[in-house]
Design a protein around this nucleic acid. Structure first.
Length: 344
DNA sequence: GCAATTGCATGATTT
DNA sequence: AAAATCATGCAATTG
């Protein structure tokens, strides 16, 4: 196997379990909150004891950048939620025991900015969901979702030499990254889906699109996604094609956006781009490279198979890359084009 | 030898 | 109409 290494077989939905089930299970768990808007598992209170978690002893800090790895120091609380590693069937164990955790995580993540305390920057990579064994040789691999009892082994930075140091001060205030371009006809259905998802979470998370951002028509301004105080701006958005979601595991990136917003590729050497999943507790590592094409270049995001599978992405769906305040890192989101019935 | 991955070429589409 | 961009197929390479 090459760049599309899997988190492990269990996470990969071994036995042919469609990855969509994982994703949908997560979303379903989040969305099937009770009539009192309660989750089927406990949540730390906002500004409450959660801040005093023994594992979260970092001094009070301003909001850290959004991005999955940025919540890493707050994760130990999650581990206690997953005490039922189950059964003989690793795949099932993964699917069913972690879904509530995912839901929890998602909820937490979407509310995190409301918490008073944030992980220290130097804890950023101590993601307990990651396996140590996520192969350095496999840049596209999904770090583990946390089987193996959610061990607290950290994800080695495993950054390419091109990457800047990871340490950086926490973000203060919104970013000011501009989205290179969005077609005028952003599918309304996509916006609706997003809005619905976001409002269901009860947080301010919205993507203003061409309809609402006049500057979009001027060119390179646009989609700002807000998580409460944080603002994440789209740097690249692409509707996936058949070949993008085929099992070759590579997504052709729009040249203009790639050159405008992704690190420059001077050499043929690929860059490893770490992208925190906006929904799932995963940091994806994609290979970003190009090849000559006529007088131009084609920019490719490689090792995307697992990302595509996990989100159940198909042709017509969209990949959205957001700027991450952490240099060299990004946030990625797969967006389904067709609204799915989450609750039946 | 085979499967997976990578690199390139070509044609369709868009600008 | 020409150039640029991109989707995709396929050959070459790699493990």
């Amino acid at each position: 196997m090459g760049g599309d290494g899997r988190p492990n077989d269990a996470a990969g939905g071994g036995g042919g379990h469609p990855h969509q089930f994982q994703y949908q299970a997560l979303l379903a768990a989040v969305h099937t909150q009770g009539p009192n808007n309660t989750l089927p598992f406990p949540l730390p209170p906002l500004n409450g004891p959660g801040a005093d978690s023994p594992t979260n002893t970092a001094a009070r800090q301003p909001p850290t950048p959004r991005g999955f790895s940025d919540w890493s120091a707050s994760t130990s609380a999650f581990t206690s939620l997953v005490q039922n590693p189950p059964s003989s069937n690793a795949a099932n164990a993964y699917h069913y025991s972690l879904s509530p955790c995912y839901a929890f995580w998602t909820h937490y993540m979407l509310n995190k900015n409301a918490y008073s305390y944030y992980p220290a920057p130097n804890q950023e990579h101590g993601h307990p969901f990651y396996h140590d064994n996520n192969q350095a040789k496999d840049p596209g691999s999904v770090p583990s979702f946390g089987l193996d009892s959610f061990s607290t082994t950290s994800l080695a930075p495993n950054m390419s030499a091109h990457m800047p140091p990871m340490e950086m001060p926490p973000m203060e205030g919104p970013l000011s990254v501009k989205e290179p371009e969005i077609s005028e006809d952003v599918p309304a259905r996509v916006v609706r889906i997003k809005d619905e998802m976001e409002t269901r979470h009860g947080v301010e998370l919205k993507c203003e699109t061409a309809d609402t951002l006049p500057e979009l028509k001027q060119g390179h301004e646009s989609c700002a996604t807000k998580f409460n105080s944080g603002e994440y701006q789209v740097i690249l958005r692409k509707e996936l094609t058949k070949s993008d979601v085929a099992n070759v595991g590579r997504i052709v990136l729009p040249k203009k956006d790639a050159e405008a917003s992704l690190p420059p590729l001077c050499e043929r050497d690929p860059l490893i781009l770490q992208m925190d999943d906006m929904v799932l507790p995963v940091t994806w590592k994609f290979k970003y490279r190009f090849w000559p094409n006529n007088k131009s270049r084609m920019y490719i995001l490689d090792s995307t198979t697992e990302f595509v599978k996990t989100h159940g992405l198909q042709a017509g769906d969209t990949i959205i890359i957001y700027k991450n305040p952490v240099p060299g890192k990004y946030i990625v989101r797969g967006e389904k084009a067709i609204q799915q019935t989450l609750n039946h």
